[in-house]
Design a protein around this nucleic acid. Structure first.
Lengths: 343, 343
DNA sequence: TTTGACTCCGAAAGCGTTTTCGTTGAAAAT
DNA sequence: ATTTTCAACGAAAACGCTTTCGGAGTCAAA
C-alpha cells in the first residue's frame, strides 16, 4: 500500500509525526532506540516520503538540473549517457533528483537561468561546454544560483568546477610522441573560444619546450571541432615543405578527419605520420588502423560533479573550495608509432 | 523579487488566492476579464508558482521519468541528447519536468519501478530498448504506472508505444537494393531478443518475396549489435561460394564492422558488395567510403513520446489508443551502388 | 413578487512534510 | 529538599498551492 505516510507510521508506533520525521532525518534529540524502531517499521511498511511535501516544507528542492550541451544546432555528445548516469547514481543515493534542461542558444540559456532563479525549483545547476570567456559564470553567480561547471573558463577562480587537466594531458601525449622518437610534432587545436583549446595548446608547447624542440608556428593548425575541420587542418599541414611525423589532435572527431585527409594523400595514419586523438570514442577502435587517443573516467566525472554541487548547496563548502582536476590516460591503439626512418 | 506568491498577487489585485489560482488554471467559473487581469500582473511581476506546493496540493507530480538505456554495461546511445532534448522541450511548454533514471540491470530496473509505484514521485515513465518479449510491459501495467515505450514488444498491444516502422524500413532498404539491380541481397540481423531484429528480418524477407527473389537462409546472419559482431557476421558471409552483392545491416555499428571485414578481405565496400546500415550515425559519413544508412527524426520522436505520456497521464486517452509508428528514410552516402557487372 | 438559473468569487480545508518551541520526567548538582 | 541540567518527545505553525463548497449578486422566467 502506498497509503503509508508519516501519520500512519506515527500512529502505528504511538509516536507523534514530528518525532518520526526527526527520527528519519537523524535529528540528535531523538533517542537511538526510537530511531532504530522508526527505521525498521519504515522499511517494513515500504514507506516512501512524499518528496513534494518535503521539498515544500524544507525549502530545499533536492533536485539538480543539468543543462545538456547544445552545439551548433546539434547534440552530439556521445558521453551524455555515461555522464548523466554518474550524476544520477550519486543523487539517487541521497534521494535527490536529476532533471534535464535544454537551451538551444546562449540567449535561451540565460533566459532559462533567470526563470530558475525566480522559481527556485532547482537546488543547483550543472553546466558544461564552457568557453574560454564564459559569461555564464558571472550570470549564475549574480543570480545566486549554485552551480558547478564541467570545464573551466578564464574567470572561474571563485566558482566551482571540475575539469580534465587538459594541459598535462596534451603534455603527456606530446611527451609520448617524443619518447617514440618524434621530433616534428604538430598540433591541431580547436577554436580558441573554447577554454580547453588554449590549455591543450599549452600542454603541447610545454612538452616541446621541455624536450628542447623548437616550436614551429606552422605546426599549429586551428580546426573546427568536426570531421571536416580535422580534414582541412591536416590538408594544410600536408602542404608544408617539412612535414611533421606526428600530430596531436584536439579531439577524436578531428583526428578522424585528419586521417581522412591523410588517406586522400595516400598516406597511412600511424606510418608516415603518427597521430592521436582525444576523448576515447569507441568508434576510434572501429577504423583501420584504430585511432590512439586519451580517455577519462566519464562516469566518475558525472558522480563527482553531482557530489560537488550537493556539497555546495548544503553549504558545506565555498565554491572556490570545490575545484577538481581529473587526469586523462593514454590509450594506445594503432596510430602512435615510431617515425619511419626512411621517410 | 521572488517573493511573489499567489498571496501577493491576490493582495495586489484585491482578489482571493483561490480566485487567482483558478484564474491561472483557466477554470471556467472565472470571468474573462479577471483572467486577463491576473495573467497580466503575473507576467509583470514575473511570478513563478512553487511547483512543489502545486504538486503536493494537486497530487500530480507533473514530472516524467526517462529510464536511460543501459546495455551490456555501457551507455552508448549517441542519440540520447537529441531524444531527451525533444522530450524536454515538449514538457517545458506545459511546465512539466523530465528526470532521468538509471538502472544497471533488469533486476535493478524492476526494483526502481516498485519504488516509484510506492513513492508516486513521477507521473509516468518512458522506457526504451524494448525486447522481443519485454517483461517490463506487464510489470509496469500491474504496478499501474503510466508509461510509454520507445519500441514495441510481443505483448504490447494494450500498452502505449512509439516505434519506428522497422519492417517497412528494411523493406524499403531491400527494395532499394533491388532497384539498383541487386538480386543477391543478404541481411545481417541482430540478436532475436530485440524486437526490432525480428521486424527488420521480416521487412527484408517481404521485399525479397515481393521481388520474386528466393530467400536463401545462408544470406541471413545473426550478429551482436557491435562492431565486432558485424565483422564476424560479414566474415561468415564472405565464406559463401555464392557471395551476395548487397548486404543490409541491422545497424550502423554492425555495418562498420562489416566494412572492416570486407577491407580485411581486400574488398571495397560499395563496389564488390554494396551495404547499408541503419541509424544515421554521423560518424558513418566520416569513413571512406561514407556509409549509406537510414535515418529517423529523433527529436520529434522524443517530443512525441513525451506528449503521448502526458495525454496518458491526463487520462485523455487509453494506452491502446496511443501507439505510433514513425518512418525511417534512406540516406544515400557512398556504399549503395549498382552491382559490378564484372563481379 | 417569488422562484430559479446562472455567473463569479471567497472561505476554508486540505496536501504531507519540516522545524521551532515548549513540555515532561528523570538524573545530577547544589 | 530544591534547583539545574538534559535527553526525549509532542503540539502546532508553516510551506504555497489546489479544490470543494457555498454564497452573493444579477437577470429572466413564472
Amino acid at each position: 500500500m502506498s497509503n503509508s505516510s508519516l501519520k500512519s507510521i506515527a500512529e502505528k508506533l504511538s509516536l507523534s509525526e514530528s518525532t518520526v520525521s526527526r527520527a528519519l532525518n537523524n535529528y540528535k534529540d531523538i533517542s537511538q532506540s526510537t530511531k532504530k524502531l522508526v527505521n525498521e517499521t519504515v522499511v517494513k511498511l515500504g514507506y516512501q516520503p512524499n518528496i513534494f511535501a518535503r521539498r515544500l516544507a524544507s525549502g530545499n528542492p533536492e533536485c539538480l538540473g543539468f543543462v545538456i550541451p547544445w552545439r551548433d544546432g546539434q547534440l552530439n555528445d556521445p558521453f551524455l549517457g555515461e555522464l548523466m548516469s554518474g550524476m544520477s547514481t550519486a543523487l539517487t543515493k541521497i534521494g535527490w533528483d536529476l532533471t534535464v534542461l535544454v537551451a538551444k542558444s546562449f540567449e535561451n540559456e540565460v533566459e532559462l537561468f533567470k526563470k530558475l532563479s525566480m522559481s527556485k525549483n532547482l537546488s543547483g545547476l550543472i553546466i558544461s561546454r564552457t568557453l574560454r570567456n564564459d559569461k555564464r559564470f558571472k550570470i549564475l553567480t549574480d543570480l545566486k544560483i549554485p552551480f558547478v561547471a564541467h570545464g573551466r573558463s578564464i574567470n572561474c577562480s571563485t566558482s566551482s568546477w571540475l575539469d580534465v587537466d587538459n594541459e598535462s594531458a596534451f603534455f603527456n601525449m606530446t611527451k609520448h610522441f617524443v619518447s617514440l622518437g618524434h621530433k616534428k610534432i604538430a598540433h591541431i587545436c580547436g577554436p580558441n573560444v573554447y577554454n580547453f583549446s588554449i590549455q591543450r595548446i599549452e600542454g603541447w608547447k610545454k612538452a616541446l619546450l621541455e624536450s628542447g624542440i623548437q616550436i614551429k608556428s606552422e605546426f599549429l593548425q586551428v580546426a573546427d571541432l568536426s570531421f571536416d575541420g580535422g580534414k582541412i587542418a591536416m590538408d594544410q599541414l600536408l602542404k608544408l615543405k617539412d612535414l611533421p611525423t606526428a600530430v596531436s589532435c584536439v579531439s577524436d572527431t578531428v583526428a578522424m578527419g585528419a586521417m581522412q585527409s591523410m588517406r586522400n594523400h595516400n598516406l597511412s595514419p600511424g606510418k608516415e605520420i603518427s597521430l592521436m586523438g582525444y576523448d576515447g570514442l569507441e568508434l576510434g577502435a572501429w577504423i583501420d588502423p584504430p585511432l590512439s587517443t586519451m580517455t577519462q573516467p566519464i562516469q566518475t566525472v558525472g558522480k563527482n560533479l553531482a557530489e560537488m554541487l550537493v556539497d555546495l548547496v548544503n553549504g558545506k563548502k565555498k565554491p572556490s573550495d570545490l575545484q577538481k582536476l581529473v587526469r586523462a590516460n593514454i590509450l594506445r591503439r594503432g596510430t602512435d608509432n615510431s617515425p619511419m626512418t626512411t621517410y
